[in-house]
Each structure stands twice: as C-alpha cells, then as structure tokens.
C-alpha cells in the first residue's frame, strides 16, 4: 500500500509535536557538542573537534525536526506502511 505515512492522530497534535521538536533540537546540539568536547579532551585537538561536532549536532537536530514533522518515525504497522525519510 503506497501513500504518505499516517501517524496515529493523537500524537499528531500540535502541542506534542512542538514539545518534541524543541527538546530534540536542543538535545542533539548538546550531544554533538558534548561528543566534540570529549574527543578534544582525549585527542588534545582543542577546539576543532568541539566545533565540528557542534555543527554535526546542529545538523542532526534539524534532521530530527524533519523526521518529527514528516511523522516518519511512527510507522503504522497495522497498514503495513514502512517508509524511510
């Protein structure tokens, strides 16, 4: 069965999406920065790893936002709909 992924309606409500988007973006940026900082600590490459992984983290955060907006992380297994972004 082709067609757009239809997530269950209650999880599509604006407020739940907004709460998830805000925290996912911030968390991804922090995780990227944290990984970069740890790598800098171990490899003594201050500050380049922090910068690079901060950028990666921001990109990952926006990728998470896209995934939430497209509803593609909730595949409705009843209709057998499995699409990847």
């Amino acid at each position: 069965m082709e067609g757009p992924v239809t997530p269950p309606p209650a999880t599509n409500s604006g407020m739940s999406m907004a709460l998830r988007m805000s925290s996912d973006l911030v968390a991804a940026i922090f995780v990227g920065g944290g990984i970069g900082y740890l790598l800098d600590h171990w490899c003594n490459t201050q500050p380049w790893m922090t910068v690079i992984f901060f950028v990666f983290g921001t990109a990952a955060g926006f990728r998470n936002l896209y995934r939430i907006a497209m509803g593609s992380d909730q595949n409705n297994t009843k209709t057998g709909n499995r699409s990847r972004p």
């Binding site: 998830r20 925290s23 996912d24 911030v26 991804a28 995780v31 998470n64």
Partner: peptide, 22 residues
C-alpha cells in the same frame, strides 16, 4: 553517519531533559 549517530544518541538526552525541564 556521524549525523545519524548523534541524532540517535540525542534520544535519551531529549527524553530525560524534556520531562525534567518541563
């Protein structure tokens, strides 16, 4: 791949921080 790994690792962080911050 690093972007995907970071966005995967961001899951528990966002899960924890969302509830705590609210």
């Amino acid at each position: 791949v690093p972007i995907e790994v970071i966005s995967f690792l961001a899951r528990p962080v966002s899960l924890a921080v969302r509830l705590f911050a609210n």
